[in-house]
Simulated scan of single mutants.
Amino acid sequence: MQAVAAPTPELIKELATTAPGTGVLSAHLRTDPRDPANTNHQPAWHIALRNGLRAIEADLEAGDDRDARLAFRELSERVDGELPELDPADRGRSLSVFTTADGSLDVRVTLQLPLLGDTIRWDRRPFISPLVDVVDHGRATGLVLVDSDEVVLMHWEGGRVTEPDQSRYVLDLGDWTGRESGPHDRMSGGQRSSHGEHHDSRIDDHKRRFLHDAGSKIAARLDELGWHRLLVAAAPGTEDPFVGALPDQTRERVTVTLDAHLTGEDLGSISEHVDGPLEEAWRREVEATVESARAHSSSGGAGATGAAEVLDALAQGRVAHLVYDPQLAIPASSVGPQVTAVFGDVAEDLIVERAVEHAIETDAGVSAIGDHAGLTEAGGIVATLRY
């Protein structure tokens, strides 16, 4: 089985456009060991997996395709045997598996952000919507960790923090250095220095100039590192001079600021500090998209609300960003002939999934958000439009 350490937009699009010609088992499992339900002898995710496999097998047994029944039975036994034997690190906080009986598709994706729940599906295509949700709110973000004599860059994606090369900008060195230049191992004027040793006004002024200079250095590296949004975690007294020195275009990318001294923390501790604020920032962005879609729709502009209107826009390739409630069920009566011509004949319980697949195929953004009054009022699904 191909193991993928972190999902990417490229993987999502590949899965969205895959139709192996045989049945695909998609298993999305919330394996987070911190969930109380997963601390029992048989964790909740494994119970959900077994129940889902039995339900699919029962449906196939009711049909008349004997070869499909036998093939799925073997596939079910393999998956039920393999997944519980994985190391906890390979299961992560959630796990998504896409596999066929003939092995033409066999992918396991480890997630460091939790799925909304457990989902087991059997379909002619990979069932991707639960994974799309995680990729959306886990998209790549630059972490800028600031203190008075060092700025450190970190990469956050899907709940995982890594440190890129040439990631540290240190007072008195005046250039980017590698990971080996830690926060307590720097030289100043030929003498080893540490936090708290610089108190005189001349050094304070030097630090202010350093933070100003670091801001311009960060801006120069954003495109190189592929970061379109930033979180700045600044030690007390450093946020204003640093953020204020950022060029306007760079400052606009700062979606979260934290009053926190993180330059000396390990990767796990950094992740614990930033995961929650990034989740909150993502939700604010999605809520703003919902309100934008509703406002444009009501004024006859580039927005659509409600299943019928959004599905028509999807079929026409006009959707720029789709937002839906993960509990949404779209009735077959909302699917007009134009949509059927594009989606094909779709079972009612797969209409939302096909909408998500088509949005991905047409390079639209996709977000799933629950418990939002504005989205509920709009019928549980909205879209901003390209035109």
Rank of each mutant, 00 (worst) to 15 (best):
H198M: 06
L115G: 01
V24S: 02
L60W: 08
V146K: 01
T17L: 14
T18S: 15
T384W: 04
H195D: 12
E180I: 03
F242N: 07
S26E: 06
K207N: 07
Q316K: 11
R354H: 14
G306F: 12
A89I: 06
F72I: 05
D67R: 15
V274M: 03
V339E: 08
A58K: 15
A3D: 09
G244D: 09
G380D: 09
H199A: 09
G268T: 03
W176R: 05
Q191M: 10
H206V: 05
D371F: 03
F343N: 06
D349F: 12
I351A: 07
A355V: 05
S129D: 04
K13P: 03
E348G: 05
G21W: 08
H199P: 00
V339P: 09
D65T: 08
S333K: 06
T110N: 07
L222G: 02
H273Q: 14
A304F: 10
H372P: 00
A214I: 00
L95V: 07
P33A: 03
N51K: 15
L171W: 13
A329D: 12
M154W: 04
D266K: 00
A332M: 08
V134L: 06
E357Y: 04
E291Q: 12
H184Y: 08
L29V: 14
Q166P: 01
M187C: 09
V97H: 01
I47L: 14
P43E: 11
V135F: 00
A329C: 03
S148E: 14
S297W: 13
P241Y: 03
R354S: 08
L49C: 09
A219L: 01
E150N: 02
T255F: 06
R283E: 11
A307L: 10
R386W: 10
T289I: 07
R294H: 04
H199F: 12
V342P: 07
R73N: 13
A302R: 14
R93S: 03
R179Y: 05
H321A: 07
R251C: 00
R386P: 07
H155A: 11
T39R: 15
